[in-house]
């Protein structure tokens, strides 16, 4: 195992330089994938034989829902790494990821409700998936609120890391219990059309769109963490040098 690489990656300066080189490529790729995926999905795929055109919201809804969950897991794992090995950069990543994840979570909820109106006839159904995403949204809010509550950045970082880890352990339990609760109370719920039966001409733009949103997340994350690095390291020689060179 090459530990020097690991340590170098954890250095804010190295990460700032590296991410600066990565940023334009990620941005262009994200833009390309999102534009292609969404135009293809929204304009050129055939309408669903059951849901008509309303299903097209999945090109937005599915990536958002998937990202909401992925970002939380990633954030919790990063927080654990930062907590155990005391890596500042990991905390910066956590603080940057939480608002992005919360936004996608909210987007998933809103698009889900909009989709629900024509499909189920109501804005909100206490369906297992919707309920789980709602709880995930609360977990995000808790994380953001806890960080805001502390004056000291170091304390906030540690507290958030603990909360994120506890949340990660709880997430599968919550997910499982909500699904179980749902089958218990509703019997056969309305199921979203199974993805396995999705036609290729819908699946490919969907996958493109998902890839695009993941890349977009990476892009936004890099932008945010670069700003965070500059903010937190503003007293170091390298940031001063950098700013001095630019101004």
């Amino acid at each position: 195992m090459n530990w020097t690489f690991f340590h170098r990656m954890a250095s804010p300066k190295w990460f700032y330089d590296f991410s600066g080189r990565l940023l334009p490529w990620v941005g262009m790729l994200a833009l390309g994938c999102v534009v292609i995926g969404l135009t293809w999905g929204l304009l050129f795929t055939p309408p669903d034989y059951l849901q008509g055109n309303s299903y097209r919201i999945i090109f937005l809804h599915v990536p958002a829902a998937s990202l909401a969950l992925t970002i939380y897991s990633g954030l919790a794992v990063t927080a654990a790494i930062g907590f155990i090995w005391k890596i500042k950069l990991a905390d910066m990543a956590v603080s940057c990821l939480a608002p992005i994840g919360a936004s996608f979570c909210a987007l998933a909820l809103i698009t889900g409700a909009i989709w629900g109106k024509p499909t189920w006839g109501t804005w909100w159904v206490w369906d297992a998936r919707l309920t789980s995403v709602l709880i995930l949204q609360f977990l995000y809010f808790g994380l953001i609120a806890l960080r805001e509550a502390f004056d000291s950045r170091e304390t906030a970082a540690r507290a958030c890391a603990i909360l994120a880890m506890v949340g990660l352990v709880n997430l599968p339990i919550i997910k499982f219990s909500v699904e179980w609760w749902n089958t218990l109370h509703q019997g056969a719920t309305i199921r979203v059309a199974g993805e396995s039966s999705m036609a290729m001409e819908m699946l490919i733009p969907l996958l493109t769109s998902i890839a695009g949103f993941y890349l977009f997340t990476l892009f936004v994350f890099l932008l945010r963490i670069r700003a965070e690095i500059l903010n937190r390291e503003q007293n170091t020689a390298w940031v001063r040098g950098l700013l001095g060179a630019n101004f």
Binding site: F138, A145, L146, I174, V178
Partner: peptide
């Protein structure tokens, strides 16, 4: 804040 943090974890 305490309720915001703990109530979601109480759900199961």
């Amino acid at each position: 804040l305490l309720s915001l943090l703990t109530l979601p974890l109480y759900i199961p």
